[in-house]
Structures are given as structure tokens and as C-alpha cells.
Nucleic acid binder design. Structure first.
Length: 452
RNA sequence: GGCGACGUGGCGGAGUGGCUUACGCAACGGCCUGCAAAGCCGUCUACCCGAGUUCGAUUCUCGGCGUCGCCUCCA
């Protein structure tokens, strides 16, 4: 079974399942007010890899990931551009999923939107007020963090330490808050802002309330895993949990946080190809699998530098894997090598050790290539194991093959005829022609193969 | 100032108290090839600095230097 680092216990521990055979996961999704950036890519790819792996092991995965479609960022942009906020959210959401499709991230099983849950949030806030865990000020309703004993669990810091360490930071709305860390559950709206009715005044829900309400509604108490970026650990996740705890509910059983993308020092990807912090740009300019491969070759808890050379290297590496897939497609199919699959499983179960998995994949590719060269029967199971692992990780290898147009195949055949006739001038000319049209040409003793 | 994490070869990035010093990309040599490509074999560079613990540290401890994240709405 999968062992994962748990932020709260600060250790790698088994991901205990509430229900055998089923995994319930909540992932904080995007606020749709702009294009998806590289950081979003890391988040979604990391959990896509997790999700696919869990499914590969035979588990039934329920992955809930929300869309925050009401938020200050959205309102501000709507004001700035003088257009309806819904126009922004619908367009950005469409772009978001376009980007997700582009990097082969499977859709979550549930995609709740904040605006669909306002009634439930109002109900929850009412309960918090009734329980004296929340209070009203001039500008909204606030949560009383001191009403939760273990507040700071995810911050890995006590409330006192946080306050002591706060330095000279400015505290928003400090004058009416009971504690600087108290956070807003409901914001009263200004006249021209979107508003929903509530007993304590029309307004909109605070960011931290939506994820608790949606996760508990869709997954129920004590769901298995809550994930997100390390920046969400505090205050967002802390505050989600605090609300659940204040209402006497059991929240997530396990917390997973991934590390960030850092700028490759002096790499200046932006100078070379424009704003590559935009995920759609990356997909447009490069093989979309490259980002997934980069992430697979490092650990999800390590910050990684994503620069021009990093992506270039991954693209080249992918070319090698594709070449292998092309060779492999001619190998008679076989059952995957169990030793390799066992090694895959054990690496993944050890806190998603994907770097080890990729080392295993490349090692297996080499063994398989050697076996193919030698005409050895052991090639089949090795090839099958590589394909199985890559597919389990969402890494699609281009085996080439059936989509080559007839005239291209005819050229390849002509090339072979020229070679057979030792007319190398013609052969080379034909090869150059094919290559200039973007085909990868491999001339072997068994004949010429062509692929994209 | 508080908390957390990190500094590995040309680059990315794993890992380990001593063992054949992952893996990918790049470079170099060889095999294969008509020549290439692909593939295979081999080679070259490393563990931020100082002290300590130890028979022995890149790996543990302490200090220093440097980098990053969080400390009220950013994956």
C-alpha cells in the first residue's frame, strides 16, 4: 500500500483508507481569474500522477477538485476591465481545462464551483456563529482562531509563535478582529459587487470556507487525503481544518503538499520564447509531455528549477523513449516482466519515488534494447513492462507506425531500393527529403522506418 | 524576528556512514552502419565552508555562508 509523507505527522506513513478499495482525495483547484501558469501545472500533474497510479493499483479513486469562481481577484479584474465577472470566470475556466487537456491531466471526478455552494457556506457560517466560533464586524464575519485548541497544526507553529514572529507586518482589518490571525468567512459586498443574501448582511463567502464545505459535502467526514501546494498549508488548509474542527467534524486524515517550481537561475525562459510562465505557452512551444517527464524525474517534495535547458533535456529524453516505443512496437507482445513491475510498485509506494521509477524505466529500456539487438525473447516482457509503467504514469509514448501516409512509405521503399542497388547518392537524397519534411528516418538492415 | 526546507559532477536531479559513487541531458572513445540516425559498450568531471562525533562522513551533530517557502487570502 502507498506510503506518503504526511505534513501533520511530519513523517512518511501509510495512506489509510476509510473504505477498502476506495480513495477519497480533495485537491484545491484554481481561482479562475487568469491563465494557468507553470505552478498550476506542477500541482495538477503531481496529483494526476498520484491518481493514475492509485487507479493502476486497482483502487477506485474519487478526486474532488474545486473551481473558485468568486474571489477578490476576479472582482478586481472585472472592475478593471469593466466587464461582467462571470465572463471572466467562464472564459478562464475553459482555458484552464484546455491547458489540462494539453498536458494530459485527467478530469477530476467532481468539479464543484464555489458559486454552486454559497447556500451551504451560509449554513456553515451560521452554525459557526451560533457556536460562538465566529463573530461579525463592520466588514464581514470572522472566524475566531483561538476557539480551536490546536490551531497551528498545519502551520507547524503555535498561534503565539506566529504572532511573536510576525514582525512589523500589517494586519488587515486589525482594529475589529479579536486576534490578528482571525480570518474572514463572509465579506460584506460593496454596492457594485456580486452579492448573495445572508442573515448577517449580503456579501460573498471567504476563500477558506468553500473548500471545507465542498470537501465535506462530496467526500464526507474523515476523507482520506487533502492535497495542495506548500503555500496552501498555511493559512488556507489550516483554516479549512479549523472550521471543520470548530463544528466537531473530522477533517482530512492525511495531508500532502508539493513543492514549487523555481526559476532556473538565469535561465530566462521568458526571454527566449515569451511568457513561458503561462502553461498554454509551454504546451504550444514544446512537447507537452516534457513537463510531466521533468516532474517524474524529481521528487514532488523537492523544489525544481524549470528552465530552458531543463525542458530541452526532457524533450531529447522523450525522443529516446519514442524511438524505443517505435522499436518496441515490432516486438511480439508479451506479459509484462513482474520483477520490473514489482520494483515500480515498491518505488511508488515509498512516497511516490518517481525519480527511482524513471531510473528503472531507463534501465529497463536499455535491457530491452540489448535484448532486441540480440534477438532475445526476454525483450517482450521488458518492453511490456516499460509500456505498462509509462501508461500508469500518464506518459504517452509515440510508437509511430500506422499514421504514415502512403507516399511517405513509398519514398522509404524507394530509399531501400536505392540502398540495395548501392546507389547511395539517391538514398541520401531521399533521406534528406524525408527529414526535411519532419520525419525521423532510421535505416537499418531490416529496412527503413519512418515516423514523426 | 519566528517556523520549515535546501545547498551533489557541464546542466537537471536521486541517494548513501565505508560497497561497482542512481537516472536523464551534454561531452569523449569504441562497436554497429555504405554513411548517418537509433541502439549497445566504455570514459570524464561531485558531494558549500569550518569544527566535532567516528576506525572512517558527501551522508550524523554544531557553527558559518548562501538560496528558497510560509508567517492573513499565491500551486
Amino acid at each position: 500500500m502507498l506510503h506518503l509523507y504526511d505534513t501533520v505527522s511530519r513523517s512518511v506513513r501509510e495512506l489509510a483508507l476509510r473504505e477498502p478499495g476506495k480513495v477519497s482525495i480533495y485537491l484545491c483547484g484554481p481561482t479562475v481569474y487568469g491563465p494557468a501558469h507553470l505552478g498550476h501545472g506542477r500541482a495538477t500533474l503531481s496529483y494526476d500522477i498520484l491518481r493514475r497510479y492509485l487507479e493502476w493499483t486497482g483502487l477506485d479513486v474519487r478526486l474532488v477538485s474545486n473551481i473558485t469562481d468568486i474571489d477578490d481577484h476576479i472582482i478586481n479584474r472585472a472592475k478593471r476591465e469593466d466587464r461582467p465577472w462571470k465572463d471572466i470566470t467562464t472564459k478562464c475556466e475553459a482555458m484552464w481545462f484546455e491547458a489540462m487537456d494539453g498536458i494530459n491531466v485527467a478530469r477530476p471526478t467532481d468539479i464543484p464551483r464555489a458559486t454552486e455552494y454559497v447556500d451551504e457556506m451560509v449554513e456553515m457560517i451560521a452554525e459557526l456563529i451560533a457556536a460562538d466560533k465566529a463573530y461579525t464586524t463592520d466588514d464581514g464575519v470572522y472566524f475566531d482562531v483561538e476557539s480551536v485548541d490546536d490551531y497551528g497544526l498545519l502551520a507547524l507553529q503555535t498561534l503565539d509563535d506566529m504572532r511573536a514572529g510576525g514582525g512589523d507586518r500589517e494586519v488587515f482589518g486589525a482594529d475589529q478582529k479579536r486576534h490578528p490571525a482571525d480570518f474572514v468567512l463572509w465579506k460584506f459586498s460593496k454596492p457594485d459587487e456580486p452579492a448573495w443574501p445572508a442573515p448577517w448582511g449580503d456579501g460573498r463567502p471567504g476563500w477558506h470556507s468553500e473548500c471545507v464545505v465542498m470537501s465535506l459535502d462530496l467526500l464526507g467526514e474523515g476523507f482520506d487525503l487533502h492535497c495542495g501546494g506548500q503555500d496552501l498549508r498555511f493559512p488556507h488548509h489550516e483554516n479549512e481544518r479549523a472550521q471543520a474542527v470548530a463544528l466537531g467534524k473530522t477533517f482530512a486524515n492525511h495531508w500532502m503538499h508539493h513543492a514549487f517550481i523555481v526559476d532556473g537561475e538565469g535561465e530566462k525562459m521568458s526571454k527566449s520564447i515569451g511568457n513561458v510562465s503561462n502553461l498554454l505557452d509551454l504546451i504550444e512551444h514544446y512537447d507537452q509531455r516534457a513537463y510531466r517527464l521533468v516532474l517524474l524525474q524529481s521528487h514532488y517534495r523537492s523544489p525544481i528549477a524549470l528552465g530552458q535547458t531543463t525542458i530541452d533535456n526532457a524533450v531529447k529524453s522523450l525522443a529516446g523513449l519514442d524511438a524505443f516505443a517505435a522499436r518496441a512496437s515490432k516486438v511480439p507482445s508479451a506479459e509484462p516482466d513482474q520483477t520490473v513491475l514489482d520494483a515500480f510498485r515498491s518505488a511508488m509506494n515509498d512516497d511516490l519515488d518517481t525519480p527511482k521509477v524513471m531510473a528503472l524505466v531507463f534501465d529497463t529500456v536499455r535491457s530491452a534494447n540489448s535484448a532486441i539487438d540480440a534477438g532475445d525473447d526476454s525483450a517482450g516482457p521488458l518492453v511490456a513492462a516499460v509500456m505498462e509503467i509509462c501508461s500508469a504514469l500518464g506518459l504517452v509514448l509515440a510508437g509511430g507506425g500506422d499514421d504514415v501516409p502512403a507516399e511517405i512509405l513509398a519514398q522509404a521503399a524507394a530509399l531501400d531500393q536505392a540502398r540495395a542497388a548501392k546507389d547511395y547518392g539517391t538514398a541520401d537524397a531521399l533521406r534528406d527529403e524525408l527529414q526535411s519534411e519532419g520525419w525521423t528516418v532510421e535505416t537499418t538492415k531490416d529496412g527503413t522506418s519512418v515516423r514523426r
